Amino acid sequence: MLLSIDWDAYSGTRELIFDAPIWGTRDLEHDRLAAWRERVRKRGGQDWNVLAADFPLFSGWQALAQYVGMPAFVALSHADAWGWLERFPGRDVLNIDSHHDLASFSGDALRVRPGNWAGLGLRAGLIQRYTCLYPEWHADLPVAEGFDLGRTRAEVLPLLAPGVLERVTLTRALPLPPPGQVETLLLVQSPAWTNPAHDKEFLALAQQLNCETLTSPLSRLRFDG
């Protein structure tokens, strides 16, 4: 299988944080950095540390070190996943993510974007079967897709081409696959959704996995706001 890991499965949010990107955000340049600076100022802070209580780094990402030694890639956004799929077409994909990435609710439905790359990959035959593994912290966050899987499945059904949803699994209840079952992995930063304070861990993980760069992730370690 192919293993895709969106950093927003680990760099997340607490309940009732109404300026959290999980409530909905674009993926523009402003959303990747300036919007995070605005969240700092709103909390009266002068650096990323003030975000820690509302936007924690959840545990579990450390276990990804078990995949050291296999072909690995890093990308800024899941919009860049298409080239990865084309290198390894027709496989099953396990995507650890806070979003299903099956369909976007607005815009051009056929243009590859972070919110629809998996659905388009299924439609094009680049993905055989697709599993979205939501993080466990979604169980405590009613606004999150992974809180009510039946609700999420019903929401996405009208947006997919016929026959696609039957090749899709949405779950919160899977362990990480053993390395022997993974052909290659893709590590995605998704900076519009992930706390800049966690870039240090993300970039270190990409280095540890010896990732080939598809598109360069951001380094937002300094606030400079």
Rank of each mutant, 00 (worst) to 15 (best):
T152L: 10
D97G: 04
A139Y: 10
L221V: 12
E166Q: 13
R153H: 08
E145M: 10
I127A: 06
S216E: 13
L16N: 15
A81I: 06
L205E: 11
P158G: 02
L203K: 10
F147Y: 15
S190P: 05
A197D: 08
E38D: 14
W82Y: 03
L141C: 06
D101T: 06
E183F: 08
D224F: 08
L159M: 09
G90I: 11
H78S: 12
E166A: 12
G60C: 08
P191K: 04
Q128C: 07
A118T: 10
R153D: 08
D54S: 14
D80W: 10
L16G: 04
F202S: 09
V182F: 01
D108M: 09
P89S: 00
E212L: 09
H138G: 01
G121R: 09
G12H: 05
L16P: 00
R113D: 15
V164R: 10
V156M: 06
R167Y: 06
V68S: 14
L165T: 01
L149N: 11
W137G: 03
N116D: 05
G146E: 03
F147Q: 03
W7H: 04
P217D: 05
W7K: 03
R26M: 06
A204T: 10
L157K: 14
R37G: 04
R113E: 15
Q46G: 15
W137A: 03
E155A: 10
G107C: 13
T215G: 00
Y134E: 08
S4R: 07
A192F: 01
V164Y: 03
Y134F: 15
F223Q: 06
E166R: 11
N195M: 07
W137F: 13
A53Y: 02
G225S: 08
Q208D: 04
I22S: 08
V168H: 07
S11F: 05
L3N: 07
P217N: 10
T215Q: 07
R113C: 14
W48T: 11
W7C: 05
A109V: 12
A35D: 09
G121W: 08
P178T: 02
L64G: 02
L120Q: 12
L16K: 15
Y10G: 05
A63S: 12
E212Y: 03
Q66V: 13
S77E: 09
L218Y: 13
S59A: 15
A139I: 11
L221Q: 15
R39V: 00
L3E: 03
L76S: 04
I22C: 09
M70V: 14
G45W: 11
L157Y: 05
P162C: 07
T169C: 07
P196D: 00
A81L: 10
E166I: 00
V68T: 15
W84V: 13
R91P: 01
G60W: 10
A139C: 13
H138M: 02
P142H: 12
L2T: 01
T152K: 09
V74I: 11
G90S: 13
A109W: 06
